[in-house]
Amino acid sequence: MKKTTEKRIFIFVCTTPALLLLTLFMIVPTIEVFRMSLYKWGGFSNNQVFVGLNNFKILWNDMNFIRSLQNSILLIVVVTLITIVLAILFSTLLTRENVKGGNFFRVIFYIPNILSIVVIAGIFSAIYDPTSGLLNNFLSVFNIESLQKMWLGDQKIAIYSISGALVWQAVGYYMVMYMSSMANIPESFYEASSLEGAGRITQFFSITLPLIWNNIRTTLTFFIVSTINLSFLLVQAMTGGGPDGSTEVFLSYMYKQAYTNSSYGYGMAIGVVIFLFSFALSAIINQITKREVLEY
């Protein structure tokens, strides 16, 4: 009898602090996001007016929001495609080919992942600077000044410059992920196929790719979530959404409305839309990419 009371106390003491912190700083704020999206609540006046779905109606006609939507979708597509191709290419090279210094390359490729986004923003500001930047000066060394651009100043190019930084940041991370799942493929598969005369490319498409397909599918969800998040952190530290809104992304627009502009209700409505969007997009992509899981 005494034992069960003691056990109860033990369980209570161990779980309560964690539950309290989780509730206070994660669950309540999440509920608040949804609740506040239904209110008109602006500025420093503390009166909240319930407006139902009105914030969402305004959102639909907000050209700045539409622009941030376009930019975010563009980034998700461009960053995912380039990063996936590079990450798979390099993970295949490092696992399948007997590369000298393979460990060295793996260590180097992962470095961008441990850097603060603020530092990455600083590095790419130094690279993209129009006069004293590394990139433009590099181009002038090879006498191809025609390729010199205002990398962050030109409205048409700025968003692609941002995607360059995001790819740079992500390749190593996904490469390590794919490498760990490629390492699980039994060597005998490759031996058997090469006896039958299959070359590298055939091997890649008929052994490697199908067997890591499930891993790739999982990372597609990561790509959506992390591109939405990291593009915000990067844009916030690097361009602030400029020039003239051309690099504004989902969450940076939300932050601008909710924090800088103090339109809390409207900002949270943006948050809800982004959340639903990323959720729906992940679900759709998950459905489209569904294949029969191959066992080995």
Binding site: I27, T30, L233, Y264
Partner: peptide, 9 residues
């Protein structure tokens, strides 16, 4: 739950 959404609340 992602931190970037709930930082303002």
């Amino acid at each position: 739950i992602n931190v970037n959404y709930i930082v303002v609340p």
